[in-house]
């Protein structure tokens, strides 16, 4: 917390150092994020076209009113974004945590397996998208063949032509892609888990499950919260995977906010409107993170 007495020479010097230390970061962000952002934000109040962003009629909050009251796709896009984000984050968390637990103990070939587990994250995102398309192909995809030989399905599923299946396939691919991030962070967290705590819990007669819930999870809480916040923000922005596979279809089943924003700007040329969507999205995420930071700081103090 900043000191309230501004007059002390030390706090003044601190203030200056803080300014100097933050300056490079803020300068770069100002140049490549905030300045461009400021120039487009104004468009959200205009009926602006993509090729004439500053032009267009001034419509005040018209874009927002239309978006929130008339637009039938917007609620779908919000819902899909939330589903996509939540299931991706939860999925990556569960698989990443399981992998981290399994690979933190003594396992043969541990180093190698840890390396393998990181691969999905190193493959360029565009390739992940195309690999998804290839593996989930309804006619020749390996996913269908595998599911059928395991006896889980009888007929091939045309993944990208079924509304639920399409979203499910994308979530699975996304979880695969992002698991290494959770895996790595949680693996790191597990390394520092104090042995004494685990031993103490064992002495108390706590079983594996209890120990996990009472010792391991609280220990990792800090990491989990930070990574989760980042994952939520990143997944809201997930564009490459969905655009390269379904472009939001079939029938809006995979239409997320990022896809909808893109379509409005680059296919419909309604730049003002797409900026309005982005602004609503920004405000939503801001509210989420302010709330989240509160919760996080609260739990840290506790």
């Amino acid at each position: 917390m900043p000191p309230r007495g501004h007059s002390s020479p030390r706090s003044r010097s601190d203030q200056r150092y803080a300014a100097a230390f933050l300056a490079p970061t803020l300068a770069i962000l100002a140049l490549v994020v905030f300045y461009p952002l400021a120039t487009v934000l104004a468009s959200s109040l205009r009926d602006a076209n993509l090729l004439a962003r500053a032009g267009g009629r001034f419509v005040g909050l018209g874009n927002f009113v239309r978006l929130l009251t008339l637009d039938e796709v917007f609620p779908t896009a919000v819902l899909n974004t939330v589903i996509f984000t939540a299931s991706s984050v939860v999925g990556a968390f569960v698989v990443g945590f399981a992998l981290a637990l399994a690979l933190s103990g003594r396992v043969p070939l541990r180093g190698f397996l840890r390396g393998i587990a990181l691969i999905p994250w190193v493959i360029p995102g565009v390739i992940v998208a195309l690999l998804t398309l290839y593996m989930f192909n309804g006619e020749v995809g390996i996913v269908n063949f595998t599911l059928r030989s395991l006896g889980l399905i009888r007929h091939f599923i045309p993944w990208f032509a079924r509304e639920r299946a399409a979203l499910a396939a994308l979530v699975v691919a996304n979880v695969w892609n992002q698991t290494p991030f959770y895996f790595l962070m949680l693996l790191a967290g597990l390394q520092t888990q104090p042995e004494e705590l685990v031993e103490a819990a064992k002495m108390d007669g706590a079983g594996v499950v209890l120990r996990f819930l009472n010792v391991t999870v609280p220990h990792l809480k800090g990491i989990i919260m930070i990574i989760t916040a980042l994952m939520v923000i990143w997944n809201f922005n997930n564009f490459d995977l969905i655009w390269a596979t379904t472009q939001g279809g079939p029938v809006d089943a995979t239409m997320t906010l990022s896809i909808y924003t893109y379509r409005q700007a680059f296919l419909s040329f309604q730049f003002g409107y797409s900026t309005a969507i982005s602004v609503v999205w920004l405000l939503g995420l801001l509210a989420f993170s302010v709330f989240y930071i509160r919760v996080m700081e609260g739990s840290r103090r506790a």
């Binding site: 010097s13 200056r16 150092y17 100097a20 803020l26 300068a27 100002a30 140049l31």
Partner: peptide
Amino acid sequence: MNRKAVAFLLLAASTGCGV
């Protein structure tokens, strides 16, 4: 203010002022 800190600031400012 420390001289190095000033240099930092100037560097940062020059990036921003490029516009």
